[in-house]
Amino acid sequence: MSKSNTKKPLKIKQPPDIYPTKTKAQVTIIFFAIVAMYLYSMNWTQRDMVGDITDAPANMVSVLGKFFPPNYSYWSNIWDEMALTIQMAVIATTIAAIITVPLALLSARNITTFKPLYYATRTFLNLLRTIPDLVLAVIFVGLFGIGLLPGILALIVFSLGILAKLISETIETVDMSPLEAMRASGGGTIQVIWTGLVPQVLPQFTSLVLYVFEINVRASVVLGYVGAGGIGQVLQSQLRYGHIAFPNAMAIIVLIFIVVLVIEYISSKLREALI
């Protein structure tokens, strides 16, 4: 039928690629965009650096050398401040855990069936979580002056956002059938929540509170840097003295490091036991 009798050259067909060409092109473009943005960012952030980037490692070694050896005898002066830092975290976590209960209930879809209220609480919590802890501390220091109180308040507000979100998500995953059964047999809202919901979420609730306590300890060690009390305040004053006080500063940093590690270890063991 066809006029052409020309033999077609034997072609070995490549197996079709798993990924379509379009995806490949997209991935390539995204990859180059990311690299370009990275190079631009690096260029921007280094624009007002004194000296060359190649000097930085040598520089870093010589400056960090001044921090060593840490002056461990300085620890005897800072036990009280370190204790205050942990106490700040304990109080803030406790108060946040109490306030978070109504907020978490209001922002759980399966408990708060009244949609506008649910969305309002959700939005409020999302807004709360966008503000970094130190910014809250700066504002509270502006309001209450330098001291522990602004630090505690900043930690409360900061951890409230995280805790309420995590707990409301836990509440949303509970088994609703016991709650419905109780409601059907005439239980009031409080009764349903207390006997149907609380036993289901209590282990997770405790675990999440411990997790937020870990975050709070970590946050409270730096809050002092803006005048919100605790060990951060001592660290800042030591760094301000310059080179002479660097071993003291390093002693503080080492102490913070140890305390954070110990608290994380205890808290993670407790959480493992709970769930």
Partner: peptide, 22 residues
């Protein structure tokens, strides 16, 4: 275990107060 801010303090001392330390 190192809070970000402590790392930033160390790097500010090392490479100077600029965005690259961040």
């Amino acid at each position: 275990a190192f809070p970000d801010l402590i790392l930033a303090i160390l790097f500010v001392v090392a490479v100077g107060p600029n965005a690259f330390a961040g």
